[in-house]
Each structure stands twice: as C-alpha cells, then as structure tokens.
Design a protein around this nucleic acid. Sequence first.
DNA 1: GTTATTGCAAACCATTTGCAAGTGT
DNA 2: ACACTTGCAAATGGTTTGCAATAAC
Lengths: 160, 160
Amino acid sequence: MMSVAVSPLDKFREYLATKSKRLTQERAIIVEEVFSDHEHFDADQLVERMQQREDGRRVSRSTVYRTLKGLEEAGLLRKVARNDNREVYEHDYGYPQHDHLICKNCGSLTEFTNESISKVLEEVSSDHRFRMAGHRLEVYGICEKCSGPVQRRHPMLDRI
Amino acid sequence: MMSVAVSPLDKFREYLATKSKRLTQERAIIVEEVFSDHEHFDADQLVERMQQREDGRRVSRSTVYRTLKGLEEAGLLRKVARNDNREVYEHDYGYPQHDHLICKNCGSLTEFTNESISKVLEEVSSDHRFRMAGHRLEVYGICEKCSGPVQRRHPMLDRI
DNA sequence: GTTATTGCAAACCATTTGCAAGTGT
DNA sequence: ACACTTGCAAATGGTTTGCAATAAC
C-alpha cells in the first residue's frame, strides 16, 4: 500500500516551483484529464480527449506534448512502451510499481507486479556500481484472447 | 555455453528461403558488416559503416533499413533500446540472453545476465496465459563512470 | 512590468515507400 | 522470363520548435 500524501496537481506544482515554471490553466487541465483515470494512453489520445472536453477548455497539441514532458520529469508519468510508433504513458505516482505483457497481435497491455524483479535489478545495479533510477520491462508475446479464439475457429474439432 | 551450428549468413539464408526472398549481394554485405563485431549500433551508424567500406561495395540507406527489419524477423538481431531517438540493435544469435543498464548521462549500455529474470517472466506469462516470445528490459540510471568523477570534483573534500 | 507560456504553422528527423531500373533463381 | 530488390527521391508521421500574442507571477 502506497500512501499518496499529495495530489498529482500539488506534486506538479512543487516541481514547477523548483524550476521557476508556472502553473498555467492549460497545465492544470491536462493534469486533471490525465489523472481522471488509470488507463494507458499516448500523446495523440490525450490531445483528442482535450479537444472533446465539454467545458470547452481546449489545449493545443504543442502544449500537450510540452506538458507530458514536464509530467514525466516531475515523476508523475512514465513511458512504458511504444505502440504504433507512439510512446505510451502511464501514471507513475500513487500507483504501485509494475511491468507489462504486451500483445504483438492486438497491442493490449497487461500489468503485472513481481517483487523479485526489482530485487534482482537492485542487486545487479549494485554489482555494477550503477545507480538505478528506474526501469522499463516489456514482455512481448501473444495474449490469452488472441491466442485462443483465433486459432480455434472450430472449437469442437480440437478434441479429435 | 550456446553452440552456434550455423553462421549468421546461413541462418539468414534459411529465413529468406522460407519467405521466398533472395540472398542478394547487398544483404550478404550487410550481414558481414553487422556480424563483424559485437557492438551495439543504430541504423545510421550502420549506414555510415557501409559507406566507408574500402571495397566500395556500397549499400543504400533504404536497403540498410529494409535488411535490418529482415534480420530482426530472422532472429539475428533485436532492438534493445532507443538512444537519441534511434533504435539500437544488437546480435540476437550466437550470443547469450542478457539485458542492459542504460546510463542516462552518457548513453552507454552495459550488458548483464541474470537467470532468475527469465524464470520469473515465464512464470508470470504462464499465470496470465500469455505466450511470451521475448522481452526488453532497460534499466535506467547513472553508470559508474558518470557518477564517479563528475560528482567528486574535489575528492579530498569527500572525507570532511 | 517581467518572464514564462501558449497556439499556430513550419521544421525536424528517423523510418518508410512508390517506382523504374537492375538482379537472383 | 518471372518475381523480388535496389536506389533514389519523395512521403510519412510523431514530436519539436520559432515566434508573436497572451497570461502568470
């Protein structure tokens, strides 16, 4: 259980302060939108969500890109994979450490957590006098959905 | 110890045959160049190496890109990281499985091997009925070289 | 009032692709 | 002969950037 003492917006505000940057309306709206759910997303999807806001508070594509970079630096987001040639982001704050199974067929991301992986990485890093700051582990393959139905077009025949 | 029964070129030849593709001079030269050492490289570096060949057997940039894709499909190369916005490749044939420590400061890649990681990944995949085909693990941080000298500009003062 | 930020359009840049000429089988 | 490949130049497409107008502090 990880406790979240500060909201994402506050955390971002802190980060901005240390860099003499400003908390603009645009940045605030983006943070709100990004943290409104836990799904993975890419820049383009976020741009689209920003354009469909009912309150009409639009934000340009450039600002979305610029803010994503800031959120990453602030430790609020991290890149987890590339899909369709786009960087895929996910929350890196208030969300437990995990990695992903990535389906080569449908592109779906399945999260999993495993304690021993981080332990191993810490050992390895220490052996190499490497100061680990984070990692990105992508496991490629075919997910359950894609390996099931597709190959069994005639389920009854499987038993023959 | 992994035994390499077949040369990279032969392995590529086999792959090409299964796809009714041809072993052209260009492809052969690229394989030769790529497997002439074990260093990591990106497409641009390979293009440059191809242009500096003394024997004048040049290969165009497009063909390099096309062949890299083929070598990846053939299981001879794999992408291991992105550096400077470019895909970084390494040998995936006749070379033991390993992962990388990537320095955020100088971009250097340090290889490491660890048995338990693949074991864990197989367990996790099996738990999710996921058919693992491979993985990509990038550990980010600061390498020994970069964390040493840079931070200790006045080594003697460290002891104060 | 200063200085950072936005939105737009243009630029960037690694990678891909259409096509006519060339090559492997 | 046939189908696959090459090299070139042009296109692609995600991401970045210059700049004048605007907003945060």
